[in-house]
Design a protein around this nucleic acid. Structure first.
Lengths: 155, 155
DNA sequence: CTAGCTGCAAAGAATTTGCTAAGTA
DNA sequence: TACTTAGCAAATTCTTTGCAGCTAG
């Protein structure tokens, strides 16, 4: 059905585009352009970085992917199709991404916007957290934390 | 009192740093590194871009400024001192930044994090809106909208 | 055929950093 | 004096784009 969209836009379906799009739409979780590129590369699929970026833009326009900025310097994508809206918690130690939904918050946001006389087109709620309390339960590995810190510093 | 902080950190106070810091802390609203740089330049203050960036980082560490990512490619800063927490609505047409606070939302966020066993270190709630309804009241100039679009496209 | 696509390398944009002279405490 | 800065230019990082040759429809 994505092919329909592609054609309806007067665009063409190529091998690279099909490969790249399939990988993106099958992806679970949150991924960067580079994640996808490496993944395809590991599967010996020949798709250039430029094509990956162009394809991601296409998918976002078609509302099949949503993108987020989790303040770590790289845009992250996630499947939008057949998924209900949700927000994110980011562990700044291990960079884990935890999704959550809260109807009440959603509702209040709408209300704030409406009361101000605007129309909401999009919203982004990200809670930055630390998982100190989780660590001992094995859900946040200290090694990952150190790695994440180093990577962040390295940018 | 910022000077105290600077010295307590074993840092030194220089003319540029003083100038740049004063301008940043007196600034109302949300500004980018470049905004600040231009502003100082217009006042014939000699402070290089590198020093502006370094100073902003310093101020953020000291919690005298907070920074936000409004998804337009440039980090924005705002005074944090003596200000209560608030969230933002961004008009994607004219790029207006409207602040708001909502205790209930704040409270619910805390609750979500707590219930998940994390500790919240920061959060970011940005509502993207359009001000079509406002435009006719003269609060959003069509010219500004076109400009904003062009600038966004130009990135 | 011909508009659209790909890959590559080069361009961009915002920010950061290495280095040397200069300034602070 | 000893250590920290400022400024500059070069480097970085992520992403976009121009172009020439290729391909779908």
């Amino acid at each position: 059905m994505f092919e329909d969209y592609v054609r309806a836009q007067g665009l063409k379906m190529t091998d690279q585009r099909r490969t790249m799009i399939r990988a993106a739409l099958q992806h679970r979780g949150h991924f960067t352009a580079e994640d996808l590129y490496r993944e395809l590369d590991a599967q010996d699929e020949q798709v250039s970085m430029a094509t990956v970026y162009r394809g991601l833009a296409l998918l976002e326009e078609a509302d099949l992917l949503h993108s987020h900025d989790f303040a770590d310097g790289q845009r992250r994508y996630e499947r939008a199709l057949d998924r209900e809206h949700h927000d994110h918690m980011i562990c700044t130690d291990c960079r884990a991404v935890i999704e959550f939904t809260n109807e009440e918050i959603e509702h209040l946001q709408e209300q704030v916007v409406r009361e101000s006389g605007f129309t909401m087109t999009d919203h982004s709620l990200t809670l930055f957290v630390t998982c100190d309390a989780f660590r001992d339960k094995g859900q946040c590995d200290r090694r990952d934390r150190r790695l994440a810190r180093k990577q962040r510093r390295a940018r």
